[in-house]
Design a binder for these strands. Structure first.
Length: 98
DNA sequence: GTTCTGACCCTAG
DNA sequence: CCTAGGGCCAGAA
């Protein structure tokens, strides 16, 4: 398999930017929508370049944000109106499909 | 080259 | 509900 392309990175960035306020998406969904073979790549992109993206709208498949960002992310999401139950976002209501 | 490390996910127990 | 293990891909040392 060819290594990651700029196209994939741009696709991920575009998808994240496309998530409306008050909604969230999972790493796996974004990876799948962008055609990436592994959800880890999405995490890598966020870590390296999250400058202009609403990274707080991206959560894990369990509905829980990454450990180090959990507090902050939940705060931001709560400000946008995303309901969370005991540190877990309600994916059934807030999950955005592409 | 090898060997961690990391915004992950799935299945089993 | 929890932990453990395997798979996954891209950097940094």
């Amino acid at each position: 398999m060819a290594p990651i392309t700029d196209e994939q990175v741009e696709a991920v960035r575009a998808l994240v930017a496309r998530i409306p306020a008050g909604r969230v998406s999972t790493y796996g969904d974004i990876a799948d929508a962008a055609g990436l073979s592994s959800p880890r790549i999405v995490g890598w992109i966020m870590r390296t370049d999250s400058s202009d993206l609403p990274w707080h709208r991206v959560i894990t498949a369990s509905g829980r944000p990454a450990a180090h960002l959990a507090t902050r992310q939940l705060e931001l999401l709560r400000a946008e109106g995303v309901l969370a139950d005991d540190g877990r976002v309600r994916l059934t209501e807030a999950r955005h499909s592409f």
